[in-house]
């Protein structure tokens, strides 16, 4: 299974590299990475948000989606094959789905604002930014919950600790 998993991870890395090249060669508007603020030195402004998303918005969305997938796949790779149960894979799939939902909301709510010029507010921030601040943190906390709450099931069981102690003992004996 590791061979297939690593092949998928490599494919994701190649796809991200290809997308980065596509972005790099796309024609960039003047405000692609910000412009100087009209009145205040040492400050940048974004300017026309729709113009700079028009060319590479789709590529960047795909790049970040692949990055989220890459993260989850690496977590799966780190877990011993025998412990990759359907429940564990289900948690990883849920974590990926929540991350994708948050990312989609960030991107989509920003689009809504660009089209309408209006935004809702949540806990001090415009809706799209609130999804970014609270959503990304929450989605990451899911990963931490799986690690900490599932530690003995997925990361290091008591049997693993015993096996490691045996390995240590054998290694020390082999050195004597």
């Amino acid at each position: 299974m590791d061979r297939t998993l690593v092949a998928v991870i490599f494919a994701v890395v190649l796809a991200m590299a290809a997308l980065l090249l596509l972005i790099g060669f796309a024609e960039a508007p003047a405000n692609a990475a910000g412009v100087s603020h009209a009145e205040i030195a040492a400050m940048q402004a974004g300017g026309d948000g729709a113009a700079r998303l028009e060319t590479v918005g789709g590529y960047a969305f795909a790049f970040h989606s692949l990055l989220l997938l890459f993260t989850i796949l690496l977590c799966v790779l780190s877990v011993n094959r025998a412990k990759r149960t359907s429940v564990f894979l289900g948690w990883m799939a849920l974590t990926f789905a929540v991350n994708m939902l948050v990312w989609r909301q960030i991107y989509w709510q920003h689009q809504v604002f660009l089209e309408s010029g209006e935004t809702g507010w949540l806990l001090g921030f415009p809706t799209a930014t609130a999804w970014q601040i609270y959503g990304i943190w929450f989605a990451g906390v899911l990963l931490i919950a799986v690690y900490s709450a599932g530690f003995r099931r997925y990361v290091l069981s008591e049997e693993d600790e015993r096996r490691f102690e045996e390995l240590l003992q054998e290694f020390r004996e082999s050195r004597e």
Partner: peptide, 20 residues
């Protein structure tokens, strides 16, 4: 937001590629 809306939106003044 009123000064420069992009600065207060998720990708800020530096844009989506820099952000991701």
């Amino acid at each position: 937001l009123a000064d420069d809306s992009e600065s207060m939106m998720p990708f800020g003044a530096a844009g989506i590629v820099t952000s991701v």
